[in-house]
Design a protein around this nucleic acid. Sequence first.
DNA 1: AGTCCTACGTTACGATATAACATACCTTGA
DNA 2: TCAAGGTATGTTATATCGTAACGTAGGACT
Lengths: 141, 141
Amino acid sequence: MLARAEELSAARGARLTPVRRRVLELLLESHRAMGAYDVLDRLAAEGYGKQPPVAYRALDFLVEQGLAHRIARLNAFTACIHPGEAHAAAFLICRSCHAVAESEAQAVRQALDATAAGLGFRVERATVEALGLCPSCVAPS
Amino acid sequence: MLARAEELSAARGARLTPVRRRVLELLLESHRAMGAYDVLDRLAAEGYGKQPPVAYRALDFLVEQGLAHRIARLNAFTACIHPGEAHAAAFLICRSCHAVAESEAQAVRQALDATAAGLGFRVERATVEALGLCPSCVAPS
DNA sequence: AGTCCTACGTTACGATATAACATACCTTGA
DNA sequence: TCAAGGTATGTTATATCGTAACGTAGGACT
């Protein structure tokens, strides 16, 4: 995944520097969304900068490059699991275990575009986030 | 609209007090989303409390009662235009004039439920927000 | 070598949100 | 009637999230 991120960045003339790469690793390792300050604490502990812009800049870079997503409901971030592929994502947030799953949501996006078009509204970006119970928490083993 | 809000609250044993009612009025008057601190400034100017919890509590009450919605992308609130009716809402946020339109989105919600169900995830609440251009801003007169 | 440009780091601050506690104001029931 | 308990309001203080602005370091290109 990291190798792929490297390729994608390089192909666009963007640089996946050490901080940015490390932040992506942190997001990939965590199967829940991480807040900017969670990321910052980890970076600071590893000798990177200790101030908020360090984390926000790296996270913003990853989001711009399509390597990560921001979850609006949580004010937090997750690694993208389909970097480089055009995709409409929906996020499934478990209210019990706090796992966040990224799901392909082309059908959802099309329904939204159609609804909006009916009102003359042109959708450019969509935020689709569901709060509920993940499979493990729906049916505890 | 306010009368209807009164009825709905009363029917549920909830009280639409002066502050809460005034906040709902403010949201109804504004055709864009209002931040909690925008609301707070208005309340303070009118002799209500001057501290954040005053605004947040009134807003939270309205959201719980289904009289208002929170727009996650904007950290802001709008009055609900279909209070009392079960509905799936999507919000269409104009990036040019900042108007926010609430749209019925039953089809979007169904698509999301179906997508999630395919992964074993049970959706309880959905956040659907589109950023784009409203009719007026798509085709400036 | 000098000039840019980009990224990184810092200070300082602004914006959003909540915990915890005190007070007032309704009920409701003896 | 008035005590008891619940709900709502107001306050102080603080937590959490986010950004503006400035300085420095290093690579890329003359």
